[in-house]
């Protein structure tokens, strides 16, 4: 393994952010807030773990696959959470009682 210290640091930070994302899924009140935690933390956490894999394996079949996977995660995870949030709103999932404004409902009536 190349440069084990860097690999351990990258993967540990990645795991910490993934953990915070998972905690956010449990602690935050409604589906939209939970998606926020899930998208941001899991994107960075997973990308850091994958970059750690790239550093560990170097430029070979595994490293390139991990790098491409990181790019795909960065690209698709916000798209996916947008689709989930929009679907939830159209299906009528209410916002948390403490929410202050819902312009989307005011404008579209959905």
């Amino acid at each position: 393994m190349n440069n084990p210290v860097a690999v351990y640091i990258l993967i540990s930070i990645g795991v910490v952010f993934d953990l915070v994302g998972a905690l956010g899924l449990i602690r935050l009140p409604d589906v939209y807030n939970r998606l926020q935690a899930a998208t941001k933390c899991v994107t960075l956490g997973t990308c850091l773990i994958l970059v750690g894999v790239v550093v560990a394996s170097g430029w070979n079949a595994m490293g390139i696959k991990a790098l491409l996977a990181a790019v795909f995660v960065l690209w698709t995870s916000p798209t996916g959470s947008h689709a989930l949030a929009r679907g939830a709103h159209i299906a009528g999932v209410p916002l948390w009682a403490g929410s202050v404004v819902d312009k989307y409902k005011e404008d579209t009536g959905r």
Binding site: V20, G24, P29, A37, K40, C41, L95, S99, V100, V101
Partner: peptide
């Protein structure tokens, strides 16, 4: 997110804006 999730009072004021 780390701050908001780990803070005991959960400091959020959510809403959908334009």
């Amino acid at each position: 997110v780390l701050y908001r999730v780990l803070h005991p009072n959960l400091p959020i004021r959510p809403g959908i804006v334009r």
